[in-house]
Each structure stands twice: as C-alpha cells, then as structure tokens.
C-alpha cells in the first residue's frame, strides 16, 4: 500500500453492525461460550432442585437428569464457532489456557480422588469437576491473556 494513500478508518459494514448490536454480538465477542456455560451450570442446579422438590416418574427423571446436556451442547457449538474466529494470538492464548487447565485439573482431580478413596472427604460429585474445569479455564484465559496486554 503506497505511503501517500493513508488507510481510511474502516467503515462499519452491516455485518459489523449486526455483530456489534444484534443477536450475533455474543458470538462475535466470544461471550457466547461463557453464557452457554452459565446456562449449563444453571440447568444443573435447577435439575437438582427440581428433583428434590417434586416426585418424578422414572421417564421424566431421565429427561430432568439430562436437561443440562442441552446447554452443554450449545456451549460446545459456541466454543467451536468462537475458536474459528480467533486470530493467531488469541488461538495461542486459548491453547495455553487449555494446557494450563488440563494440568491444574489433573492435580485437583487426583488430589480429590485420593482424599475420597482414603475416606478423608465426602463423595465428590463428578459433575462438579466440569464446573471447576470451566472456572479454571476462564481464569487461565484471563491470566495468560494478561501477559500479551500492555
């Protein structure tokens, strides 16, 4: 690009505007996976509470137990869509965050598993491992992203 032709500030396209203001805003800003994660956590707690409060026939219990799987699938799709839009630095941050999450989760799960098998703590609900994993991933992503910010 020649020097005598400075780059004009990019005009906002209809797609940009829709992405900024419309229903695609969450996806564009990478917030959709977080929102789906929160929906999954909410569905998990709601399912547990509904099971306690009401009597359910067996078939309905199956549906209730698998209720959080729907937003979880939504989270997976949102993660895949968000990942495809990341640039090379954001992908690097994501990869480092995933790696750190795996390492931390390994330590946490082995520790909890051993403590439980020795009878030192009560039963550890495996679904809580997912909540813990998402929380560790979000913190890792923020913490690793910090080193690339000024």
């Amino acid at each position: 690009m020649p020097e005598d032709r400075p780059l004009e500030p990019p005009a906002e396209s209809p797609e940009d505007r829709k992405s900024r203001l419309g229903f695609g805003a969450c996806h564009a800003q990478g917030k959709a996976p977080v929102l789906w994660s929160l929906a999954t956590a909410g569905a998990m707690f709601a399912a547990v509470l509904l099971r306690k409060w009401f009597e359910w026939p067996r078939a309905a219990l199956v549906v209730l137990a698998l209720l959080p799987v729907l937003p979880l699938i939504g989270m997976c799709v949102a993660m895949a869509r968000a990942s495809s839009r990341l640039d090379e630095l954001q992908r690097r941050i994501q990869l480092e965050a995933l790696g750190l999450t795996v390492l931390v989760m390994s330590v946490v799960l082995v520790s909890l598993g051993m403590l439980e098998s020795f009878g030192l703590i009560g039963h550890f609900d495996p679904t809580m491992a997912w909540v813990l994993m998402v929380a560790i991933y979000v913190i890792s992503f923020w913490w690793i992203g910090r080193k690339y910010r000024s």
């Binding site: 020097e3 500030p9 990019p10 640039d87 090379e88 954001q90 910010r149």
Partner: peptide, 29 residues
Amino acid sequence: AEHGWSQAALAKELDVSRQTVNAIENGRY
C-alpha cells in the same frame, strides 16, 4: 504512526484483533 493509522484500522487490514496489533507493537508477541 507515519501513516496516521489507528491500531483498529491496521488490525482490520491485517484481519486480526486490535489486541494482537498492540501485542506486536509492544514486542510481547
């Protein structure tokens, strides 16, 4: 700066985020 471009404008031209342009400029990436 010589071209009078903003980080956002350069980021748009490069098809990356403004954060990436900023990290490159600061030598962090």
